[in-house]
């Protein structure tokens, strides 16, 4: 099947999933432009890591990679292919021998790639030269766990096709960008639905990542964010990174598969550039927000 760029996949390029791990999905840059029909953006939760993995193996950044949650993926290669692992860090072995994170590795048919449990970070990105090839839905190969669009999560024994390589892999090892330890938060659009103390609390306290966080939202627990009143908000559009506050006062940050509309007020928005830190935060880890003035001179209505 020709992909949207007119290249034809080579059917002989493929791999076999020996162990999928707890949750491994196909991800690219998602389905922007369809939110008005109720379609989530989806795509890689940590886009920085996904893009880096693709560049390392010589792919354009929109090509699909595997998003490995927690680790535990084992694949058997059935063709010559360059791979690269970015994002979360853990052991990477090829045929039992430890190999480097963040480096393009040129491998061959029959090679066994084993990714252990991640030791830091939550989501690893494994890119292949040529990218993962599967049918597109609304222009994307991403698995959307909210709406069920795109391919199912990887299963044991599954064959995955790969596209033909785009260009030569990069040489050298990626230097990991210095990790930001605070996440910026731009107040609004509904900060005025909260008591004045709420933004201060959000900016001065540690909020801990809850175990039921997923690709839809990072759920946080910490000092309660109090509303002015119990008014109902009619459903309104949500952007990626929206910090929604349900009646229990515990914030949740919208990730890739977030619903397109919601009825809880959004106290602030985490800029896309800072979402990688949230996408990589493991349950139990603290998140610190820094409240910034992102919309200087903006028209902001007051109730």
């Amino acid at each position: 099947m020709p992909d949207p760029h007119g290249r034809t996949a080579s059917p002989e390029r493929s791999l076999r999933v020996v162990q999928p791990g707890p949750l491994t999905t196909v991800q690219d840059l998602g389905r922007p432009g369809w939110a008005h029909l109720g379609v989530p953006r989806s795509g890689a939760a940590d886009q920085v890591a996904h893009r880096l993995a693709n560049r390392l193996v010589g792919n354009p950044e929109h090509v699909a990679s595997l998003e490995i949650t927690v680790g535990g993926l084992v694949v058997a290669l059935e063709c010559a292919v360059a791979i690269a692992l970015t994002g979360a860090r853990g052991s990477l072995r090829v045929n039992g021998r430890p190999r480097e994170w963040g480096t393009a590795l040129s491998l061959g048919a029959g090679d066994l790639v084993e990714i252990g449990p991640f030791e830091s970070g939550l989501r690893g990105y494994l890119a292949f030269s040529g990218g993962v090839d599967c049918p597109t839905v609304l222009g994307s190969r991403s698995t959307d766990l909210l709406s069920g669009l795109g391919p199912a999560p990887l299963g044991e024994g599954q064959e995955l096709r790969l596209g033909s390589a785009w260009g030569p892999p990069m040489e050298g090892t990626a230097t990991q960008a210095p990790a930001r330890d605070v996440v910026r938060l731009v107040p609004g659009p509904r900060a005025d639905w909260f008591r004045a103390s709420a933004l201060g609390r959000l900016g001065s306290s540690a909020y801990v990542v809850e175990a039921d966080s997923n690709r839809i939202a990072v759920r946080l627990s910490g000092p309660k964010l109090n509303r002015i009143d119990e008014a109902q908000l009619p459903s309104e559009g949500l952007v990626l990174g929206s910090v929604q506050v349900p009646p229990n006062g515990q914030p949740l940050v919208m990730l890739a598969d977030h619903p397109v509309t919601g009825g809880y007020p959004v106290i602030g928005v985490v800029p896309a550039q800072d979402l990688a830190l949230l996408a990589q935060a493991r349950p139990g880890e603290p998140i610190r927000f820094s409240v910034v003035a992102g919309a200087e001179g903006a028209t902001t209505g007051r109730r």
């Binding site: 369809w34 009619p234 309104e236 559009g237 509309t261």
Partner: peptide, 27 residues
């Protein structure tokens, strides 16, 4: 905009290159 998302009584314009100008214009 990358996405234009109507709500019950709102319209969200997401992915704007100059959000300040769009906000001022719409008003």
């Amino acid at each position: 905009a990358v996405d234009v998302v109507p709500g019950a009584t709102t319209i969200l314009l997401d992915g704007l290159s100059d959000p300040q100008a769009v906000a001022a214009d719409i008003e």
